[in-house]
Design a protein around this nucleic acid. Structure first.
Length: 929
RNA sequence: GGGCGCUUAGCUCAGUCGGUCCAGAGCGCCUGCCUUACAAGCAGGAGGUCGCUGGUUCGAAUCCAGCAGCGCCCACCA
């Protein structure tokens, strides 16, 4: 067998073509350069023309908010999308990924308002137009940076198609859909109790008011009955009701319970349950509302439950949704007591005007207290709604707003899920989606903001005519007056996002793009916006385009810190993806995220230790780079034999790795198909690292030193497998693979003169699957590992070759001609198929198929010394073991010591006993078989 | 109040149809190696009653029931 010698040291050895490749992948230099190559090659662009030749595959990006730069959640989301897009592109699809950003109404306005506040100003100081300019000034650079960041992590979007939800085209889409829905009576204006954020000063949709638990009080208030209704109260008390009584001045009162006493100023009635016998006599009576002196009626309503509080409820229709509904059913008046100009609100008695909510509460309570009308209070845990953008307590408030009628829109979207036209991964989200759709409520879309799409509605100041036109009107369509005023409000930011899958392709209006690229295929996003966005896109898609906007929805997990908290700016536990890209490279970021996140599973990363958090990706990329570097250097400049021509000369390891490659390629496809990106990453890591690098490369090193057919065949396989591995890994780690691709010498089909990004995805070949080779090689692997293990056990250094006796089993013949292999991988000098001589000293092991290995150790190690060492160690252990056993045999110890101490003692003894047994076996093997 | 999810090695997590990938990976740890691809590495190890209790089955991490702990979503009990 050829002994090892330095490459290029004599004629006949491989050409010395030292390529000066650095030992680590220099991501800082390479990524930018590779990105330019991709862009110069127009690799990301996809046109309707292309799609005629190759079937399209379309993803529209969940447009990041222009409020701020990207966080790790975006890193995960966009890596997932890019993996899908790159994979499909290599499969030969016209892969189109449409990028863009979202104007994010409230969120963005808040950010800019906070900045103004720092300057001591409010938006009113600037006025509407100047404020809007100010927002644009913030949004434009941020939007640019977001797109640059997406590029930095390797996203292969068609950048020429980048859209913004507030750009001209999308504004047209918003206008068109608003007008259409209005014409179809699916948009209406009405006075309802909506969620009002008193900090953002705008209405919110139901979804934008998030429930949060809060400790508060349940107050019990006494409401006196109006003169003339005493008999009703007396009858009630006679019937045994506890919540009716008499004040010192003789007036009768009822006790009502409320968590928000200040709203009593807006009460217009009191309600009891219709089936509540205690209060049957009260219905129809009149209460004199304290502090205001208003006379309000007592009504019966089925929403009032007898078993909560006193079973009597105050009704404040303008400030509580359920009270509003009671009023609607019973005809109670609606009285708004919280207005922006509260100081002039005639509904509120003078002392309580112009107060904040919390001040109003204490003022009302002390006033009631003074009149002896507070019966008491209980601690109470309740859920209060908060603004999803600023966390302020949301106020239910009667107000005139625009709504979308959702029932009809939801029907086809619900159907789409039930028929499987759209599917969710993980599957469990299907039910969540359907339940929401089933009892969907109307969508409040008007916002009292200045940043967003202005509501396209004009009110005639002369005749009151309301017009909702496609073009801005000059005069009233009804009376001709030019005194038109546009609705001051803007639309919910999601009102533009929900059109995204078709608005980005130029809707309204026919276009080739729309025709070609709608519907798309997959959507990847966070489950938080399932209702806000995903569900609504499906509704608008079905309604406008008659088809769901995508077939598959992948809802990925959340990026959290080590404590499981969601990463957020306010907690300061975020990780800046750009910092990771800078330090470890985009590939390291991507691999870590992809490999770390199961389907829909959260991913935990330590923001305080980026080094550890991204080690999996960084290590992998480095390994990939080095294996690639080794192959490139080994191949040299000589032309590489096409694989088909080498086929006749394949060695066992060649057949093995080629077979494993087919297996991994097939699995990778399956995993990606099911959105199991982590599964793909794992399969490919196993193939590349544990099989190709750890075993195959080591197996062929000797052949590479030759100069002849053996080397040629090895080079051919080496090159082929690396090339395929690089293709398979490209969607996950695009930069380092593209770099290696460019370094690989020209392949048989010459297609690596093209960029890897557009190279074909490997097709598993049935012919290269070789189960026999896999079995044999697996056996060899086991043998090598056992020999290494024995060497380690008996401290036989790697500098020393051992000989090996092999008997039994069914595969010993596989060893024929594997001397070089065994020497390299296990430092085995010679192999003999024979039983050890009687009395031979050595170590033995049995493989799974029954093959017996015997490693003669005499002469290799000092047997006597090793035996003595073992004896000493055994004796040392025996001392401890005996003592331990003695304690366990002692009834006093077992009886009195705490049970966990006894338990630990048992474990200790067991573990000692095991070790002693092992060492005794070792010593026995040294005595000779 | 409803609904959903999670609990597997010290840590973070895979585990598809119940059975030779079923007890796995990465990180960490121990031991030995700077072996000319890679110390961000190589080789050899240690480490887990798969949350608990029952049940179904020839067979359960996997299916069923109950329990415990954690987390998420939805909901107008004032």
């Amino acid at each position: 067998m050829t002994s090892r010698r330095p490459a290029g040291s004599e004629p006949g050895s491989p050409p010395d073509h030292h390529l000066e490749l650095p030992a680590t992948f220099n991501h800082r230099g390479a990524e930018e350069r590779i990105r330019r190559l991709w862009e110069a090659g127009d690799s990301f662009a996809a046109s309707a023309q292309d799609a005629k030749k190759r079937e399209p595959y379309v993803i529209v990006i969940p447009p990041p908010n222009v409020t701020a730069v990207l966080h790790m959640g975006h890193g995960l989301n966009n890596t997932i999308q890019d993996v899908l897009i790159r994979w499909r592109r290599m499969q030969g699809r016209t892969a189109l990924w449409v990028p863009g950003t979202d104007h994010a109404g409230i969120a963005t306005q808040n950010v800019v308002e906070r900045r103004l506040a720092a300057e001591g100003k409010t938006r009113y100081d600037l006025g509407r137009e100047a404020f809007a300019r100010r927002v644009w000034d913030h949004v434009e650079p941020t939007g640019e940076r977001i797109l640059a960041q997406l590029k930095a992590i390797g996203c292969s979007c068609d950048w020429n198609r980048a859209r913004f939800t507030l750009d001209e085209g999308l504004t047209r889409s918003v206008r068109e859909i608003f007008v259409r829905l209005y014409e179809d009576d699916l948009i209406y204006r009405g006075r309802y109790v909506i969620n009002w954020c008193p900090r953002c000063l705008t209405a919110l949709s139901n979804e934008e008011a998030e429930g949060s638990e809060r400790k508060g009080h349940l107050w019990h208030l006494r409401y006196p009955l109006a003169p003339g209704h005493e008999t009703a109260a007396a009858r009630t008390q006679a019937a045994g009701a506890q919540s009716v009584g008499r004040l010192p001045d003789g007036r009768w009162y009822l006790v009502v319970s409320t968590t928000r006493p200040e709203t009593m100023l807006g009460d217009t009635g009191v309600a009891v349950g219709p089936g509540d016998d205690r209060y049957r006599g009260l219905v129809g009576a009149v209460v004199e509302l304290p502090l205001t002196g208003r006379k309000v009626p007592i009504v019966a309503d089925e929403s009032v439950r007898a078993d909560f509080g006193t079973g009597i409820v105050k009704v404040t229709p303008a400030h509580d949704l359920s009270d509003f509904e009671i009023a609607a059913r019973t005809g109670l008046e609606v009285l708004d007591i919280m207005t922006e100009r509260a100081t002039t609100n005639d509904n509120v008695p003078q002392p309580f005007r112009g107060l904040r909510r919390s001040d109003a509460r204490s003022a009302v309570l002390s006033a009631l207290e003074a009149e002896g009308l507070v019966a008491g209070r209980d601690a109470h845990l309740h859920t209060v709604p908060r603004c999803y953008r600023c966390d302020a307590l949301v106020e239910p408030r009667l107000s005139e707003q625009w709504f979308v009628r959702m029932k009809a829109l939801a029907q086809p979207a619900l159907e789409a899920s039930r028929t499987g036209a759209v599917t969710f991964a993980p599957l469990r989200w299907t039910r969540v989606y359907e339940r929401w759709m089933e009892d969907i409520r109307d969508w409040c879309i008007s916002r009292q903001l200045w940043w967003g799409h202005r509501i396209p509605v004009w009110y005639c100041q002369d005749c009151g005519h309301v017009s909702v036109p496609r073009e801005d009107p000059e005069s009233c369509a009804s009376c001709g007056s030019t005194l038109l005023e546009q609705d001051p409000d803007v639309l919910d930011t999601w009102f533009s996002s929900w059109l995204w899958p078709f608005s980005v392709f130029g809707w309204p209006g026919e276009s080739e793009d729309l025709e070609t690229f709608y519907p798309g295929h997959a959507l990847s996003t966070a489950p938080e916006i399932l209702f806000f966005w995903v569900a609504r896109m499906i509704m608008s898609g079905c309604h406008v385009m008659g088809e769901v906007p995508f077939q598959r929805v992948y809802l990925h997990g959340t990026v959290r810190d080590t404590q499981g908290r969601k990463m957020s700016k306010s907690l300061g536990n975020g990780i800046d993806p750009m910092e990771v890209v800078e330090r470890y490279g985009a590939d390291a970021l991507r691999f870590t995220l992809v490999a770390g996140a199961g389907v829909g599973a959260d991913i935990r990363l330590d923001p305080k230790n980026l080094e550890a958090a991204f080690a999996p990706g960084r290590n992998f990329v480095n390994k990939l780079w080095n294996a690639g570097r080794f192959v490139v250097m080994s191949l040299g400049k000589d032309p590489v034999l096409p694989l088909e021509e080498a086929a006749g000369e394949f060695q066992l390891e060649d057949r093995w790795i080629l077979s494993r490659l087919q297996f991994a390629a097939r699995r990778a496809d399956e995993e990606l198909e099911a959105f199991r990106m982590h599964g793909a990453a794992e399969v490919l890591r196993e193939l590349f690292w544990s099989e190709f690098a750890d075993w195959y490369l080591e197996s062929v090193k000797d052949r590479l030193q030759e100069n002849g057919p053996g080397r040629k065949v090895a080079c051919s396989v080496l090159r082929h497998v690396l090339e395929e591995v690089i293709r398979l890994l490209h969607p996950i780690v695009p930069f380092v693979t593209e770099e290696l691709w460019s370094l690989l010498p020209g392949s048989e089909d010459g297609d690596n003169r093209r960029l890897l990004i557009v190279a074909p995805w490997p097709e598993p070949s049935r012919e290269l699957v070789d189960e026999e080779a896999e079995r044999r090689f697996k056996w060899l692997q086991e043998l090598v590992v056992r020999v290494r293990s024995l060497r380690k056990e008996y401290r036989v250094g790697e500098g020393q070759e051992v000989s090996l006796l092999v008997t039994g089993g069914s595969r010993a013949h596989v060893l024929k001609g594997r001397e070089a292999f065994l020497r390299r991988l296990a430092r085995v000098g010679s192999v003999e198929a024979s039983a050890p001589a009687p009395g031979a000293v050595g170590a033995s092991a049995v493989l799974q198929d029954g093959t017996e290995l015997f490693l003669p150790l005499e002469g290799v190690i000092d047997v006597n010394r090793e035996r003595n060492r073992l004896t000493r160690e055994i004796e040392r252990l025996m001392v401890g073991l005996k003592r331990s056993r003695a304690r366990l045999a002692n009834d006093k110890f077992v009886g009195r010591a705490p049970s966990d101490v006894v338990e630990r003692e048992r474990e200790k003894a067991d573990s000692w006993a095991r070790r002693v047994r092992k060492l005794q076996e070792k010593r026995a093997s040294l005595e000779g078989a």
